[in-house]
């Protein structure tokens, strides 16, 4: 129990729009252990970003509403905190970095001041102390000549440097948990690797737990110890990195793994999962994936499958796990290579 830094239980979040209630998250349960990096993967619209922003309570409200659930961080339920209590958690115990570093920094404030703000608020530093820390933070995240850089504005930074600055902001108060919402999606491939290396490095150095939201399985393999797969607002499979990459159980996870291009599968067409995710205004009653599933059964249409524990850590929601279900061959090789048969 004490080894868990974060437990999310039965979380349900909806957006009340003119068109109706969009059920973005429909009962999500997972946890993050101390010092662990957990990846949340899924397509756009699967609810992974909403999950991460819910933890920080950054969901704009209205239209967002927390329908149900608990978010227990470090022993307290964040959903029970009032605004000013939550402010003390944000940026201090939980840091967050976002997808697009080009727009995530205030264009009219120097980078140094943007780092210093959180330090002044949470650690009671005065301005000059905070600016000194800001220089240190920039040096820590690998920005050359930080003394000069703190006085510059975001537009004078390159994309990769801005993301480093974002990381500096997020880590400035030494948080216990870092949430990274697609931190590399908007960056060049070469820069992506640098940012992931930096995060790994800092995780080792400070023992920070990480939640990384991504759809890039390369990033997952590189950084995460555990993986949560989301689809249409639900977690459909979660397990250790090895569980998900070497023993995936859900057809959607298979699809995800098959859609990764591999150097050793020359001459084959890149696989994709046909179809689009369901409309969350009116989510399907049964398994949300069945319309796109090659193994769909009658039961899938109207009944959402219960959780099946493959191991203590590896859980999946799929009717194929039911004893009455027909046996199917996993259509991928160990490690995610495409099956010849396909």
């Amino acid at each position: 129990m004490t080894d868990k830094i974060l437990e999310v239980k039965d979380l349900e979040v909806s957006f009340l729009t003119y068109a109706g209630e969009v059920k973005a998250i429909r009962g999500v349960t997972f946890d993050v252990k101390k010092g662990e990096a957990v990846a949340i993967v899924g397509e756009s619209g699967s609810g992974k970003s909403v999950t991460s922003q819910s933890i920080m309570q950054l969901i704009p409200s209205p239209p967002g509403v927390y329908k149900n659930g608990e978010i227990i961080f470090d022993g307290q339920d964040l959903l029970n905190l009032n605004n000013s209590e939550m402010e003390k958690v944000r940026g201090s115990s939980i840091g967050m970095i976002f997808q697009d570093p080009m727009t995530s920094l205030n264009p009219t404030m120097t980078v140094g001041k943007q780092i210093a703000e959180g330090l002044i608020k949470h650690q009671g530093l005065n301005k000059s102390e905070a600016m000194e820390r800001a220089v240190e933070m920039l040096r820590l995240v690998g920005i050359p000549n930080p003394e000069a850089r703190v006085k510059q504005y975001p537009h004078e930074f390159s994309g990769g440097m801005r993301q480093r600055a974002m990381i500096a902001i997020a880590l400035s108060c030494n948080p216990k948990l870092l949430i990274a919402d697609e931190p590399t999606t908007a960056l060049d491939v070469t820069i992506q690797a640098q940012i992931i290396d930096l995060m790994k490095d800092l995780q080792n150095k400070f023992g920070t737990s990480i939640i990384i939201i991504t759809h890039d399985l390369g990033v997952v393999a590189d950084l995460a110890q555990r993986v949560v797969v989301m689809y249409a607002g639900k977690i459909i499979e979660q397990g250790s990195l090895d569980d998900i990459f070497y023993n995936p159980q859900h057809p959607y996870t298979w699809g995800l793994l098959r859609s990764v291009p591999r150097l050793d599968s020359k001459g084959q067409r890149l696989e994709s999962i046909e179809g689009t995710p369901p409309d969350l205004l009116d989510p399907p009653k049964g398994c949300p994936f069945y319309p796109r599933c090659d193994y769909a059964m009658e039961v899938c249409v109207n009944h959402f499958p219960e959780e099946t524990k493959i191991t203590d850590d590896h859980k999946v929601h799929c009717w194929l796990q039911h004893p009455d279900a027909p046996k199917v061959d996993v259509p991928i090789k160990i490690g995610g290579a495409n099956n010849e048969a396909k």
Binding site: M56, L58, E87, K88, V89, R90, G91, S92, G95, M96, F98, D100, T103, S104, L105, N106, P107, Q114, E117, G118, K121, H122, M166, I169, A170
Partner: peptide, 11 residues
């Protein structure tokens, strides 16, 4: 986005 960043800082 930068307003979200500012809020994420706990301001």
């Amino acid at each position: 986005d930068y307003i979200r960043t500012a809020r994420a800082k706990g301001l």
